[in-house]
Design a protein around this nucleic acid. Sequence first.
DNA 1: AGTTAATCGAGACGGTACGTCTAGTCTTATT
DNA 2: AATAAGACTAGACGTACCGTCTCGATTAACT
Lengths: 217, 217, 217, 217
Amino acid sequence: MSGLKKRSRGATVGVAPAETRRIGRPRNEETRKVILATTLKLLESETLQSISIEGIAREAGVSKATIYRWWSSKASIVLDAFMEHHLVRTPMRHDLPPAEALVDHIAALIDSYSGWAGRIVAQIIAEGQSDAALLREFRERFQYGRRAAVREVLESWRQQGGIPAHVDLELLTEVLYGPIYARLLLGSAALHRDFADQLASLVFSMFGLDNASGRRP
Amino acid sequence: MSGLKKRSRGATVGVAPAETRRIGRPRNEETRKVILATTLKLLESETLQSISIEGIAREAGVSKATIYRWWSSKASIVLDAFMEHHLVRTPMRHDLPPAEALVDHIAALIDSYSGWAGRIVAQIIAEGQSDAALLREFRERFQYGRRAAVREVLESWRQQGGIPAHVDLELLTEVLYGPIYARLLLGSAALHRDFADQLASLVFSMFGLDNASGRRP
Amino acid sequence: MSGLKKRSRGATVGVAPAETRRIGRPRNEETRKVILATTLKLLESETLQSISIEGIAREAGVSKATIYRWWSSKASIVLDAFMEHHLVRTPMRHDLPPAEALVDHIAALIDSYSGWAGRIVAQIIAEGQSDAALLREFRERFQYGRRAAVREVLESWRQQGGIPAHVDLELLTEVLYGPIYARLLLGSAALHRDFADQLASLVFSMFGLDNASGRRP
Amino acid sequence: MSGLKKRSRGATVGVAPAETRRIGRPRNEETRKVILATTLKLLESETLQSISIEGIAREAGVSKATIYRWWSSKASIVLDAFMEHHLVRTPMRHDLPPAEALVDHIAALIDSYSGWAGRIVAQIIAEGQSDAALLREFRERFQYGRRAAVREVLESWRQQGGIPAHVDLELLTEVLYGPIYARLLLGSAALHRDFADQLASLVFSMFGLDNASGRRP
DNA sequence: AGTTAATCGAGACGGTACGTCTAGTCTTATT
DNA sequence: AATAAGACTAGACGTACCGTCTCGATTAACT
């Protein structure tokens, strides 16, 4: 449940709080918040690499030990902070036909990644290259839900006859997401809105579908 | 000319040596080699992040100042070392039909990235997230030539009627490369040989082409 | 009363206990014992300097706050522990002639200080250099009684004609004890049994007394 | 050679400098001095225990690493600083008769130890209780010369017939010094000038000597 | 039986220092 | 010049304790 230091506390997401107050001085929720907020604030002007746990502690008016007690690395703080304060909103609309919902979703993702959020995600992934646990956590917290939603839409699209039976939907998802992450990380080209349309167009045209509707003409 | 420190020396690649011997003790070629070799050796057991210029100097029996004189960061040393000692060989075969040449090329790339080379490339890109110059250099030295070759093959394939006119070849290239880099950097799935086939299959099937030959049935 | 935190409990030295049981949960005697025992156990393998209140609490399975409630420093815990569990036995024998009783006593002291007890005493004195209260307490609890006993013996020896009238007995005590503490703390020479004999011999000879009996020949 | 970190530099005390300038940036003598001076300054208002290497570095405007490169502990810095800036002057006068020279010397020592120098010496010895190397170094640098000088005087005094042949001079030295260090470290009584006279008186009287001259009446 | 006062454990917290490490820069000597 | 050796500042690293604090649970004596 995040790159948090292992704490037996439990409290899995969604589960009823149960309020099993444990003995000992309780954790100060305010402290947790100020750490995450400070981290985000620092990230507005600095690189993940350039900020330090020392700096976060100093800026947040918090002891280093407190940070180390709860997080294992600065990247996992960022992960938490990012999830909490800036939860990327790239919903999958269920009121649109599959093709449109998909384009809408991808466009939102690209839009989000084209700015500040993209820089942060890129840096988390970068840190993940030398921190396997972080990378896994990133996948689980950022991608798991999203991928499932995309998968669902693709399924329903297929049922409407839009996608041939032999196409591997998982692979298709990778083909859609891959180029976006590649641009994000390699900086080979900017992440503009048009890129969403281009990507979709390509896929649509590949299936011989109409651009706008995703339906066979 | 790499992430080398700016040196007025010049000597652009390919220009005749001219042997403009300058005053003073000449640069020791041996030193340059031992630095690059040591760097690669260290990369076999350590992360790019975990190695330090201090460590390279120590291990190579070389002064830190000497390294700083010629390179601007450890990542640029790695770039040089990687290019020199391990030049990735993912040639584009011209004796095969376009579809096959493409699959062959992609398979070679995936194969290369599935091992040690992949880890290094991933780490260079990671470093590149906080070092724009490095990232640009990586693109220029690693991708420029490759992309051009792919482009060429795609063009000839189109001329043979394999790719519809409305498909943007540049975009198609991104769709082919993107998922590979995404897997490399996100670690969402392993880079196995089959992935090359799957990718190609998808693209082929998208154009309604035959799997094996890339020709319309 | 030891380096105990000031507690209104009272019980001034000598005053009748009166058993003024106060309201509230009474102090847990078990806890007190386990803290002292643990401290001694730790001192067997570690330096006073190297052990920490945190460590004592951890090892004793006791809350840090509990320790802080009753003692003001780790050295005062050691003082208590040392007094309680290892009360140094360097009695003054009253069945021997003064000279012999004295040598016996000094020999016992040296013997005691030559081992584990010596290391602890030395470390308490060391701590005392930056904790005046501790040093005073050490003097009161360790030396007060002993010095008085020595004084008594010296008096009776003088009455038997062994010590000239002009000799300051207090000073003589210092001359006997001083070299022992100096060796203990400076480590200039080992604290062997012979040292007791040498010391006594010197003093005896100074007064022109016979070595064995302390009587004038 | 002090608690200095082992450095192959050599330059044993007294040996001609030889000026074997070695390669590399030479040590900055200014830095060394400012560290020692700062340390002494801090010791005027703080305990050895309470000062920290961190604090010395901060106050001296010097990097911690520089301190750690040359000294192994704060106590060894103090030892150096004390030797350098405050070399205790307790000379042995050779123009006086042995008895007087001895009293003079002891009085000077007591005088010196009764103030600031005494506090520092006490604290070095205290630190030495958990740092054997430091204690040894203290003995060598502070006591070696002094003891030899005292020994010499005692020898000449004996030759003049003042000290009986059977008295162990080494032991006599301990009897003279011991009570001083005991008072210094136990704080049982103040180190006043009179103590020198009292000590001498006792010793003189022990040998049946005249107080003033150290000669038999 | 309920109140009150204290003890005690668990553990969070802001601090401070530890000793190590690396980045870069600088100084000197050597080639 | 270029290189080597190494001193130096600056500052982060992650750990360990410090002494204080909050909390819940416990334990008696006193209502």
